[in-house]
Simulated scan of single mutants.
Amino acid sequence: MHGTETPSDWVRRWAPLIPSGSTVLDVACGAGRHLRWLHGLGHPVVGVDQSAQALDACAGLGEMVRADLESGPWPFAGRQFGAVVVTNYLWRPLWPALVASLMPGGVLVYETFARGNETVGRPARAEFLLAPGELLHACAGLRVVAYEDGFLPDPERFVQRIAAVRELAEPVTPPRYGLSPAA
C-alpha cells in the first residue's frame, strides 16, 4: 500500500493552481501520499477509496469516504472542490462526475497510464490504458493548462496527464470596435 511515497511530480507542479484554503478531493487515494502533502500545504482534504485499510492509514487527515467508485453511486453528488486529484487510476464513467465536482476556479490534476505502457510493464490491458488524446476529450469545457502524453524514464512508464481549470465565469464576448458602414 502506498502512503509514505513522495507525491507525484505532476501533482506537486500544479498544486499552486489550487485556490488557497479550498478543499481537495483525492480519488482512489490509497494510503494518502497526496492527501498528506496537500494537507501539509493547508488544504482541507477528502479522500475516497474502496479499501478500509487504506483509509485507516489516513485517519486524522480529513474526511475519509469508503466507496466502490466503479459500482456504486458517486458519493459527492452536489459537492464541489477546489481540486480533484487522480493518479494511477482509471474509470472512464467517472469523468463527468470529476469535472462536475470542480468549483469555479478549481483544478483537475490527473495522471495515469497510457497506451504504450504494455511495452514496458503493467498495466498492460487496453482497458486500463488511455488512448491518445483521451484525457483532453474528457476535459472538454475546462481550460487546459498543461497536458502530456508520452514516456517517462524513471520508473519506465507511458502516461497521460493533465492539469485543467474550471473557469471562474463564462468568457465575456468583447465589444466590436470599428467603423460602421456608411449609410
Rank of each mutant, 00 (worst) to 15 (best):
L90K: 01
G106H: 13
V144F: 07
G47N: 11
W91H: 15
R79C: 02
L94R: 01
R66W: 07
P123Q: 05
P73L: 09
V65W: 06
A126E: 15
E70V: 00
L130D: 04
V145S: 05
M64N: 08
E111W: 02
G133D: 03
G141V: 03
E70R: 05
G141F: 03
G78N: 00
G78K: 00
V145A: 05
L135G: 01
D68T: 07
V45K: 02
F113I: 05
S71N: 12
E70A: 02
G60E: 15
F113E: 08
E148R: 08
G116S: 00
L136T: 11
P96G: 12
V145D: 07
G78L: 00
A124Q: 05
P123E: 04
C58F: 10
R122G: 04
R125I: 03
G72F: 09
E70I: 02
C139V: 05
P132F: 14
D68W: 10
A114D: 01
D149W: 09
G82R: 00
H137T: 12
P44A: 10
L136Y: 13
L102I: 11
L142H: 08
A67Y: 09
T87A: 13
W74S: 03
A54T: 10
P132W: 12
D49W: 14
P44N: 07
A131E: 13
D149A: 06
G82M: 00
P96M: 10
G106S: 11
L94K: 00
G42E: 14
R125G: 01
E111P: 01
L61S: 11
T87G: 11
P96I: 11
L108N: 02
A83I: 07
Q53D: 15
R125L: 06
P96N: 11
P96D: 14
G133T: 02
G105N: 12
F81W: 03
Q50F: 15
N88M: 07
L94Y: 04
Y110C: 02
R143E: 15
L136A: 10
V85W: 13
Q80R: 13
A100S: 15
R122Q: 11
E63A: 11
A146S: 04
D56V: 11
G105Y: 09
L102C: 09
Y147E: 06
N88R: 10
R92H: 06
L69T: 08
V86G: 14
A114C: 01
Y89C: 04
Y89D: 06
M103D: 08
C58P: 07
T112R: 01
S71G: 09
E118L: 01
A126K: 09
A52E: 15
A83M: 05
V107L: 05
A97R: 13
W74G: 02
